[in-house]
């Protein structure tokens, strides 16, 4: 079973992914693919539904921002352990557009050893890969207490700390 970490807490799984060919429930929280969202947005905006959108890691966030900007959750894909494209998507969502909803990571890279970097890039929801121990994962956020470069977490950089 997969675990969900949100804002550094282990929480109940929510926002399940709706298969593209499944009918949406009458109410509740769910995630749909970008493709589905484009097709059925009118219906999915109905009362009682809270719908997040999963975007492929190959799209330029700037091209689709207008379509997803009011969503409560944006789901980023990390298809493989070494595929880091969605890190840049997360930063554009947070830094450029000031997106305030949940940015959730899913896929093969959502493991103990990448959570710290993901959090720095503005990801705050982690759908852990099935083999991950959530208690071990929670420690990831403590790996580093300092940062050399600015990112989406607003950490005061070493350069700025030296200045003060």
């Amino acid at each position: 079973m997969t675990h969900l970490i949100r804002d550094q807490q282990l929480v109940e799984h929510d926002f399940p992914l709706l298969a593209d060919d499944a009918a949406p429930p009458a109410s509740g929280k769910l995630i749909v693919s970008l493709e589905r969202w484009r097709k059925d947005a009118a219906e999915l905006r109905g009362p009682g539904l809270e719908v997040g959108v999963r975007i492929p890691n190959t799209v330029n966030v700037e091209d689709i921002w207008a379509e997803i900007s009011d969503r409560p959750l944006i789901n980023l894909e990390f298809p493989g352990f070494a595929d880091g494209r969605a890190y840049s998507q997360a930063r554009v969502l947070r830094d450029r557009y000031g997106y305030r909803g949940e940015v959730r990571a899913s896929g093969g890279a959502v493991v103990r050893d990448q959570l710290h970097s993901m959090a720095r890039c503005g990801i705050n929801g982690f759908e852990l890969r099935a083999d991950q121990d959530p208690q071990v994962c929670l420690k990831a956020f403590e790996d580093f207490g300092l940062a050399y470069q600015p990112a989406a977490d607003g950490a005061l950089t070493v350069l700025r700390r030296r200045a003060s």
């Binding site: 880091g84 890190y87 990448q114 470069q149 990112a151």
Partner: peptide, 16 residues
């Protein structure tokens, strides 16, 4: 050196 510090543990660019 300033570039080294920026690049060290850069969270966005560790999986290029």
């Amino acid at each position: 050196e300033i570039t080294r510090q920026w690049a060290t543990f850069h969270p966005e660019f560790n999986w290029l």
